[in-house]
């Protein structure tokens, strides 16, 4: 093996030891939801934010809270409501009578893990303030600019039902989320275990598995993971197929209004590397791209009215693209 790649592989194996411990620590509280836990870790390791979509009661908040505890990171949950103001999120200047000066009062966004619950219930200006902080990793209160602590991970939730009185996120803002996860119901066995666990005790002690500093160190390792030229071309083909499916002989051109943006190529690359890290590999395989592809692309492909009329979703389109584009 190429000595450089071999060294990365060795390093990844060494650094990724904590993954299983972390997952099992979260598993003390959360039953199942391996898919959600892994995707949250991918977002955390590749510096991307996550949009969670699922009906209420699927342990979205609990998972994020438990994960934050296992990493010993500061966690904040913000319930987005129609009367929320940007100042409620980022903070404001308050008057200090003693010093007769205005001093900044930091808002709940100053944390490592932010759970923006029901993001589509707050007006656009609040959404915009959050998304700006997500992009810049800093907020400005009056004349003062504050850099947010790293790691900074926003997990926003959206309820797919009860759309009345909501402010749906514009496509440009949805694009800023690296992953969009669809959380589904647990299976029968898991549901039974949830029942047993949650009705006997509410006191779950979570041990710290890694520190935020460790996460920052691991991020650098993830960035070094080797990606072959063929895999890079495969990612480009996937993204281009979403824009010009006819060039790849995929019969979905009539169903796509807008294909994936270049941000999709970047996030697909980063997420595939993080996925390889979770599998203790120092190199990316097409499996990593395929495994993470749906979560990276499902919110980036805008479908046409024809697709809606035929009850096709962006997920059907993404699946078709992955089925048709040749694996290297």
């Amino acid at each position: 093996m190429n000595p450089e790649i071999a060294s990365i592989n060795e390093r990844v194996k060494e650094e990724s030891q904590f993954v299983e411990s972390l997952v099992s620590e979260v598993g003390k509280v959360i039953v199942g939801q391996r898919y959600m836990i892994e995707r949250l870790l991918i977002g955390l390791l590749s510096n991307g934010h996550v949009l969670l979509e699922g009906v209420p009661g699927l342990a979205k908040t609990m998972t994020v809270k438990t994960l934050a505890a296992a990493i010993d990171a500061k966690f904040q949950r913000i319930q987005f409501t129609p009367d929320l103001l940007p100042a409620d999120l980022i903070g404001t200047m308050i008057y200090n009578q003693k010093d007769q000066t205005f001093v900044p009062k930091k808002g709940p966004i100053f944390a490592n893990f932010i759970l923006a619950d029901e993001i589509n219930r707050a007006p656009a200006k609040v959404q915009s303030a959050l998304l700006e902080a997500m992009q810049e990793h800093q907020v400005t209160i009056s004349d003062h600019t504050f850099v947010l602590d790293e790691p900074f991970l926003v997990m926003a939730t959206q309820n797919p039902i009860e759309q009345e009185g909501t402010y749906p996120l514009p496509e440009a803002q949805i694009d800023r989320f690296m992953l969009k996860l669809k959380i589904t119901y647990p299976n029968k066995k898991e549901e039974r275990e949830i029942l047993e666990r949650m009705t006997t005790s509410n006191d779950f002690h979570i041990d710290r598995v890694v520190s935020p500093a460790d996460i920052m160190k691991v991020r650098r390792v993830v960035n070094q993971i080797y990606m072959d030229e063929k895999i890079k071309n495969y990612i480009i083909d996937i993204v281009f197929a979403s824009r010009n499916p006819e060039h790849y002989k995929i019969d979905v051109a009539d169903y796509i209004q807008y294909g994936a943006s270049p941000r999709a190529s970047i996030y697909l690359t980063l997420a595939a590397k993080a996925h390889a890290f979770l599998r203790h590999r120092g190199h990316v395989t097409p499996d990593d791209v395929k495994a993470i592809g749906m979560d990276v692309l499902r919110h980036r492909i805008i479908i046409t009215y024809e697709a809606e009329a035929e009850e096709l979703t962006s997920e059907d389109i993404v699946k078709k693209i992955f089925d048709e584009v040749e694996v290297p």
């Binding site: 190429n2 072959d228 190199h283 395989t285």
Partner: peptide
């Protein structure tokens, strides 16, 4: 095959 194709193994 994957080791050679994607991991630079020789």
């Amino acid at each position: 095959c994957d080791n050679v194709r994607y991991a630079g193994s020789v």
